[in-house]
Amino acid sequence: MRLAAKLENLSKDYVLGAETVHALCDVSIDIPEGDYIAIMGPSGSGKSTLLNLLGCLDRPTSGRFFLGGDDVSKMDDRQLSNIRASRLGFVFQSYNLVPQLTVMENIELPLYYRGGMTREDRDRCRELAEMVGLGDRLRHRPAELSGGQQQRVAVARSLANDPQFILADEPTGNLDSVTTEEILALLDRMNDEGRTIILVTHEAEVAAHTRRVIRFKDGRIQSDVIS
């Protein structure tokens, strides 16, 4: 089995005033391609820190992080940006759409930073919008959409650059149960297509959709259960 990502003794410290906070201590995880992982744990347990490291938004204090075959832990800002643009998709709790852009423009945004867009890319973005059920809202702005619709735009956006890896930070945290199911169905479908999905959640029902649940406490792995 090929690994989508590999974490080796990953640690992250934050210096807050005179104190050093060990947000993540010596974490090692192998993530095979196509895995579907829920990361759970109380707040302050290190799950957001882990997600930031996995999302190449931050660099570890020590340890190594391989994405595909590349050691990401030593990369500079420019290289990390390129990785984010080409290999990762993000879904956030608060949707994080750009308010002045239309639905279509929001979906296309990652392609723009990947270095240009072909006609096929554009067609694919339209298909993605249709897939999430917003084919008739392409010219709307985020403020004109409901929370569930905005999150569906965000899901479509995370797929625009055809990433291997989807990182979702409490994607259903702001949604009611009906829309939660819709979004999770979309994530399930993405996983069925072979993408690796890692999602952070507090909710057991959400975690139940995944194949593997990793629990964190005080910056360490408490349990790693494959269902």
């Binding site: 420019r78 940006s81 984010r84 643009a85 750009v98 308010p99 945004l109 930073y113």
Partner: peptide
């Protein structure tokens, strides 16, 4: 600021 964060997460380089 938030928009900048979003764009960075989606792969915008500093120069972008």
């Amino acid at each position: 600021t938030r928009e900048i964060g979003i764009r960075r997460a989606l792969g915008a380089k500093q120069i972008d």
